Simulated assay, not measured.
Amino acid sequence: MKTFSQLAILLIGISHFSCDGIFQYNPNQIVLKDNERDLTVKNIEKIKQLPVKDTLRFILMGDSQRWYDETSDFVKSANKQRDIAFVLHAGDISDFGITREFEWVNEIMQKLNYPYLTVIGNHDIVANGPDTYTRMYGALDYSFEFGPNKFIFVNTNSREYAFDGTTPNLTWLRSELANNPGKKNTVVVAHVPPFDADFDPKMEKEYAKILAESGTVKLSLYGHQHAFKDGEYYNDGVHYYVTTSMGTRGYMVISMWKDGYKVDRVEF
């Protein structure tokens, strides 16, 4: 039998373990390792180190949620693709906005041969999801340029903000699209497409108008609907593409060049 002093020493020792050690005290706790923080900035830096080619090839996937085995299979399939620069995750990384879910998916995605970038999904906004997302990845709205292309990532999860007119941030989006003096090809990436019921209906037409009037957006990319879809929904020259979920085992490979692009659907 342990003496009182031995038990006291044991309890003191246990108290020195961090929450990311052997104990998880609270599922809403946000405890991240250094290599799990600021992934957006880190991965953009990796992308910018890549050589710029005449044709840019990247992957659009999304809605990993609780489909961990399927997401692992996606990584194996994606790693077999040729000449891929990076992967875009179109949101719903998690299902319940729990930090451990984000960590599990990131652990899987780290096995990609390419950097990956994300946009926040509606499931990522529940619980402590926004805080975890911000700490693990970074800003909910951001952009970066690579060669002759500009990518804009925007939070379009209107329902989670009670359709209060703040989401998506159209002022920011308009400014980002205008800040393109070189008239680079622009790709807008979000989770909820504007023609979905979870997008604020009062903002749908203005959102589409902003993209069309920029003159540089030829395609815009989304997830959320768990099915492959595409179309020029507003007859304004902007083509919208929706990728399917990991649960239905599919993704898109997108090739872009100066005057055009091509989208291939892949099932794995």
Rank of each mutant, 00 (worst) to 15 (best):
C19F: 09
F151Y: 13
R100A: 15
W104D: 14
T244W: 00
M61Q: 09
D73K: 14
S143D: 12
S175R: 05
L177H: 04
K258I: 13
P194I: 03
R249G: 03
P51F: 14
K111H: 15
T167E: 00
E267S: 14
W257K: 12
Q49T: 13
T156A: 11
R249H: 05
A190W: 05
D69C: 06
N128F: 13
V187H: 07
P168G: 05
F195Y: 15
I22S: 12
K2I: 09
V266K: 04
S220E: 02
S15A: 15
N113L: 05
A197D: 08
D34Q: 12
K76R: 09
L221V: 05
K262Y: 12
N43M: 07
G13W: 03
R37L: 15
L170P: 03
E160M: 14
I12S: 08
Y133N: 10
M1V: 07
T186R: 00
I12G: 12
L11I: 10
S94A: 13
T3Y: 06
L177G: 03
D83A: 08
T171E: 11
W104S: 15
I108H: 09
L112M: 09
K42F: 03
D230V: 03
V253A: 08
T71E: 10
E101L: 06
H226I: 12
N113V: 11
A162T: 02
Y133A: 09
V266G: 04
N179K: 07
L11Q: 03
E36L: 12
D131G: 15
V41N: 11
D131C: 13
F146S: 04
L211K: 00
F163L: 03
W67I: 07
F86N: 02
D198C: 11
Y116P: 07
G91R: 00
M61K: 02
L211F: 12
N106H: 14
D236M: 09
K202W: 08
W257S: 13
K46N: 11
V188W: 11
K262H: 07
D198A: 14
Q49Y: 09
T134E: 13
R100N: 15
N35M: 07
G231R: 01
T166F: 04
N155H: 05
G215H: 03
F74D: 03
